[in-house]
């Protein structure tokens, strides 16, 4: 195991031993299983409700877990001074930061996979249709979490856990609403509002591009090109956030 893998694996181990992750994972599983109750409200859109509720639950719970895990990642290391023992080893700060992000994403990949399995088992149990778009939606969620995680790490590279969590939560909602804001601003007669809508649309990551959950709900297909371009979009935003975080982190004093 090389230094990078060891640090990433340690990040995964930290999340696994963190009670919050375990409790949230268990809670998400219970909520997913309880979606059987929701099916009682429908007669002929059974598959749709089950998919919508299942993927929605996964998305919401994992988004908030991501905010929790990433927004204090660096600031906690600096506050507790655990970072002294890591960056004094023959590893660069960039390596350390990217490994921490990788550890976070490994944790989230395991959680997305485990929840998807529970979700699919439920569909099987109720004889509902399993479509490729449901799997694409789960994969898309992971890329959305990648953007959110890298944003959380960026904010935590220069602020405390609380400020970082507030900013990342704000980015999550703004990222999902960026497209809507752009559309609404277009209809404004005020050129300033129009410009502001346009600027926000281009400055914020559009998390809706990785959101295939509505398509999964309505059993619409997603072609490979659309998925790959969304994945590339997510990776590009994550790279931008990580690069800025690295720039700040490389210049910080750890007192």
């Amino acid at each position: 195991m090389n230094a990078f893998t060891a640090m990433a694996w340690n990040g995964f181990r930290e999340a696994r031993r963190n009670k919050v992750t375990v409790v949230v994972g268990a809670f998400a599983s219970v909520v997913l299983l309880s979606s059987t109750l929701v099916t009682d409200v429908t007669v002929n859109t059974f598959d749709r409700v089950l998919t919508d509720f299942g993927l929605g639950t996964m998305s919401l719970i994992l988004a908030f877990l991501t905010i929790f895990l990433s927004s204090g990642l660096l600031s906690r290391e600096i506050e507790r001074r655990t970072i002294f023992l890591m960056v004094s080893k023959p590893v660069s700060r960039t390596q350390f930061l990217v490994a921490r992000l990788a550890g976070n994403m490994l944790t989230l990949a395991v959680l997305v996979a485990a929840m998807t399995l529970i979700f699919l088992s439920q569909l099987l149990m109720f004889g509902a249709a399993i479509t490729s778009t449901q799997l694409v939606a789960a994969a898309g969620l992971w890329f959305e979490l990648l953007v959110l995680s890298s944003a959380g790490i960026l904010f935590s590279s220069f602020s405390g856990p609380a400020v970082s969590a507030i900013c990342t939560t704000g980015l999550y909602f703004a990222g999902h609403l960026a497209g809507d804001m752009y559309e609404i601003a277009k209809y404004s007669e005020n050129p300033l509002v129009q410009t502001l809508g346009r600027v926000l649309y281009y400055v914020l990551p559009n998390l809706e591009r990785m959101n295939f959950r509505p398509r999964a709900t309505y059993a619409l297909t997603v072609d490979a090109g659309t998925f790959l371009s969304a994945a590339a979009y997510g990776v590009a935003w994550a790279a931008i956030f990580t690069a800025i975080a690295v720039f700040i982190f490389e210049r910080r004093d750890f007192r």
Binding site: R13, E14, N18, R81, T82, F84, L85, S88
Partner: peptide
């Protein structure tokens, strides 16, 4: 390197 009041990962 051994820092003052070292703080290893306690988990």
């Amino acid at each position: 390197f051994l820092p003052e009041n070292p703080s290893p990962y306690d988990y």
